[in-house]
């Protein structure tokens, strides 16, 4: 789809199409394998699902910046082996 004159032959997809991403919440580490173009929402939901967290109560940070569910490894320029941190959202009122 996004063929920018790259000579990559279609029958042999580049090995870098998938990334391994480590997700950690300081207690657990989970490794995910994800396509560069896949929305990170899938990864975030999978992590929350497996660690029993409510997706609305945690925040994923990549290099300090909040990850939006619509971001993909490509839009964030992530490399193989990069790490996402999971932090509990904080509530403030009084």
């Amino acid at each position: 789809m996004s063929d920018e004159a790259s000579p990559a032959p279609p029958q042999d997809p580049a090995p870098s199409e998938h990334l391994n991403i480590k997700v950690t919440d300081n207690n657990n580490e989970v490794f995910f394998k994800i396509k560069r173009t896949t929305q990170l929402k899938k990864l975030m939901d999978a992590f929350c699902d497996r660690s029993g967290k409510n997706p609305t109560s945690v925040r994923f940070l990549f290099d300090g910046t909040r990850v939006q569910p619509t971001d993909s490894p490509e839009t964030l320029d992530m490399q193989d082996g990069d790490m996402l941190e999971v932090h509990q959202e904080q509530v403030g009122g009084c």
Binding site: N27, F31, F32, T38, R50
Partner: peptide
């Protein structure tokens, strides 16, 4: 350590074997 594959067809994601990795250092906490 667990590696979860996010992509692929739906059946693949169902077949992913899940194990959980725990860090020895933080076990008590």
């Amino acid at each position: 350590p667990e590696i979860i594959s996010i992509d692929g067809d739906t059946s693949a994601s169902e077949n992913v074997v899940v194990s959980l990795s725990a860090c020895k250092r933080t076990l008590e906490q």
